[in-house]
């Protein structure tokens, strides 16, 4: 099988591998690295469950070929905080009950962080638009919006 070399940083650690060109970032994370916090909800860039951070921006990892990420800095939910050492964003999600089943939660958290990194939100409507790339079938949207607003303003 043809493989291509690629270097990147994953949750703070440098990685250097050679991989098949069709492997998506999502499949690499889940199948190769067993980083299963990132979820596959549609595999088509339609649901946002697979959202991770690439150089601080939110990316649908299912639409991203790993070989295209040379030199990039990738952060998944596992790199954001742990149960013993929750990040501010994770703590806010718990306080606001910004989830129900929890399946879309890692992607939602990554999107709020990317939104804050960008810093371009000027209204509640813009905030909701930003967060609308992450579907939540439990529809915890009111609490998600509260959490996203706090993350944008407080942290």
């Amino acid at each position: 099988m043809n493989t291509n070399p690629v270097h990147f940083t994953l949750n703070g650690k440098p990685v250097k591998i050679s991989i098949e060109p069709w492997t998506t970032l999502l499949d690499y994370l889940r199948y190769h690295k067993k980083l299963v916090g990132t979820k596959k909800g549609c595999d088509h860039g339609q649901c946002g469950a697979c959202t991770v951070l690439v150089d601080g921006n939110s990316v649908n990892s299912c639409l991203c070929l790993l070989v295209s990420l040379d030199g990039k800095d990738i952060t998944t939910i596992e790199g954001i905080g742990t149960a013993d050492n929750l990040s501010v964003e994770q703590q806010i999600f718990i306080e606001e009950d910004a989830y129900q089943c929890g399946f879309c939660t890692p992607g939602q958290i990554c999107s709020t962080i990317a939104m804050r990194n960008r810093g371009e939100i000027n209204s509640e409507e813009e905030l909701k638009d930003w967060m609308s790339g992450n579907l939540c079938r439990c529809a915890a949207y009111k609490n998600l919006t509260k959490a996203a607003r706090r993350i944008y303003k407080e942290s």
């Binding site: 980083l35 299963v36 916090g37 990132t38 998944t76 718990i94 989830y99 929890g102 939660t105």
Partner: peptide
């Protein structure tokens, strides 16, 4: 009360069926 399983859910450690490692 905040959810007792919240820390697992926000850290990606809540293991759904497809997350089982084997």
């Amino acid at each position: 009360q905040t959810r007792v399983d919240g820390p697992q859910k926000v850290t990606g450690k809540a293991t759904y069926t497809a997350d089982i490692a084997a």
